[in-house]
């Protein structure tokens, strides 16, 4: 974890695609960091949900990804960049219930088509961009107002 002199905190996490044994580790670490620094529990839950879904998308679909947590006094940013198949049609991918998960993943309870919509619901600002054949990037912002910190 790095903290610069402007009271910003930033941490980078590497996520390996296809490795279900470590899935959830990044989002659990993010949740623990936010709890440690005293972020309000309602914000912690939103950031945990968004980072879990972002992490699982890398585990399920991409080769690898980097998730960066950045916290300023007013905002919490989650930045994800992955190397993977990318998304052909983002509007369709954003629809609740749409999923390209395999039968095997669905049997495990993944692929409900709730991942990206869940991220959007829990973000104050959400941006997604993708280049098919190269990868997908997510930018998630959650505002920390006066209630953001205990």
């Amino acid at each position: 974890m790095t903290m610069n002199n402007e009271n910003e905190l930033s941490q980078r996490f590497e996520i390996v695609g296809g490795d279900f044994s470590k899935a959830g580790k990044t989002s659990t670490s993010i949740k623990e960091i936010l709890q440690e620094i005293g972020i309000d529990s309602s914000i912690v839950v939103r950031a945990a949900i968004a980072s879990y879904e972002a992490e699982m998308n890398v585990v399920m679909y991409a080769q690898r990804g980097v998730l960066t947590l950045n916290i300023t006094p007013m905002k919490l940013h989650l930045k994800l960049d992955d190397e993977g198949p990318g998304i052909e049609d983002i509007d369709t991918a954003m629809q609740e219930g749409f999923s390209t998960a395999t039968e095997e993943m669905r049997e495990m309870g993944f692929g409900a088509g709730m991942g990206l919509p869940n991220i959007k619901k829990n973000a104050d600002k959400f941006e997604i961009s993708s280049t098919p054949g190269q990868g997908t990037s997510l930018r998630i912002t959650i505002c920390l107002d006066k209630k953001g910190r205990k």
């Binding site: 279900f20 044994s21 899935a23 959830g24 580790k25 989002s27 659990t28 949740k31 839950v45 945990a48 949900i49 879990y52 495990m108 309870g109 993944f110």
Partner: peptide
């Protein structure tokens, strides 16, 4: 309450 038995259920319980 679930019928899932694989290891990924643990992270979900922990996270929430």
């Amino acid at each position: 309450i679930t019928l899932q038995t694989h290891q990924n259920i643990i992270a979900v319980a922990k996270l929430k």
